[in-house]
Design a protein around this nucleic acid. Structure first.
Lengths: 227, 227
DNA sequence: GCCGTCGGTTGACCTCCGTCAAGGAACCCT
DNA sequence: AGGGTTCCTTGACGGAGGTCAACCGACGGC
């Protein structure tokens, strides 16, 4: 199935490209459809190419030998993923699975690398997105090693509010998946949310969440114990 | 102080560059000397440019409000660092401090970005190193959220042995710093090392460490509990 | 020599949070 | 409707590991 030209144009990765380059991208890429729970790739598999999510939601996650998962990132439409895999031996560094019915653009590795040679602007875009990921991951490592669950959940509220631009929204993942993102299990998340709610800091009703006291969350996000 | 041309030539980041490009790099960079415990930059500070370590050791680390630190990475000579900071708003994403007397090459942001425009090969090198970091960080997140301390320490032994190419070596950091790298505190690391030693898996004498039973370490690194 | 600092080890304690188990709610299917 | 998922919540329990404290050896300065 061919990709829509206007869809390609609106992808941040390809921002500022010439018409001829866009056409070239359109030629080398293909569109793939995925149903809920479809696995796009597994950790360690040789990388086919770079993906861009057109619609739906895809989770990028690590899986431990005993089956526990940790979600590194939930990809939204317009974002590229598996960039790093293309430039590294060792194949994909994580798993990817569709959370909903999704459509992705797949740019096979070899022609994409060739494209980079002619179009340095794309390289800079890739560097920018990799840098952003790197910072996010560094923050995650900081959180996991230095903060407790309450601080991580508080930070999740604040970060999400910042990127959404408002202080209420709908979860587009299950609470179990949210737990996996902040590095805990659903039971502990459930208790933490209840604590936050009883304290009057947030409102949680089903999948709807709302921040009521941003200052309190910030205090919790900083240090586990403030005296 | 000017940089030595042969030093620049041997930096992986600039591999495969023409003589004229190398000269240009030599013109825009400057060499900085740092004593032990000198702080090169702090999290949040605006990024001056990209660093390359010429000699010594530099730790990249996160600091929590209450003073605890987590070492993200120990930079070795030849490696670049703070790449991500240059391409991102928000300044440096972490702290950097010299562990020993060190010399670094500093390439100021603006001329370096200009250089990238003309020399797409460098972009690809940057993408490659960022991808490597990204994978390392993803692995760290996996470890921190899904593995216990013993598994993380075992993995540290195996990874270090792999990159050193032998199964014995000298710690070039303190054990407290090693603890911070694997996401624990010195007391717990001390106990874990004792456990490993009593089990006959490794030998630790002062700063000298040696792997005695690689298979056992691999088993521990996989899953906390194997039955 | 003596003493201060730093790194490392060990012991005792206690808390956070992961695990196990059970029950409920909401949403599919026929 | 009813029965099967899947998701969520709550309770009880236990253990990994962080914290506090004391102690020791090595090193460096004066």
């Amino acid at each position: 199935m061919p990709a829509d030209a206007s869809e390609i144009r609106s992808i941040p990765l390809f921002a500022g490209l010439e018409e001829t380059q866009l056409r070239r991208i359109q030629e080398i890429c293909r569109v793939v459809e995925h149903g809920r729970r479809d696995v796009l790739f597994r950790e360690g598999e040789p990388a086919e190419g770079i993906f861009v999510l057109l619609s739906g939601r895809v989770k990028i996650y690590k899986l431990s030998p005993d089956g526990k998962e940790h979600i590194l990132h939930v990809v939204r439409p317009g974002q590229a993923f598996a960039e790093a895999a293309v430039f590294m031996p060792g194949g994909y560094p994580a798993y990817a699975e569709a959370l909903q019915k999704s459509r992705t653009l797949l740019l096979p590795k070899a022609p994409f690398l060739a494209l980079l040679q002619d179009e340095p602007g794309i390289s800079l875009n890739i560097i920018a997105t990799l840098s952003r990921y790197l910072k996010q991951f560094a923050d995650r490592i900081e959180d996991l090693s230095l903060k407790d669950v309450s601080a991580r959940v508080a930070r999740w509220f604040l970060n999400t509010a910042r990127e959404k631009g408002r202080d209420f929204w709908d979860l587009e993942i299950t609470k179990g998946e949210l737990a996996s993102q902040v590095g805990t299990v659903s039971e502990t998340l459930s208790r933490t949310l209840r604590k936050f709610q009883d304290a009057g800091w947030v409102q949680v009703r089903g999948r709807f969440v709302k921040i009521l006291d941003k200052g309190a969350l910030q205090a919790v996000a900083e240090g586990p114990a403030e005296e």
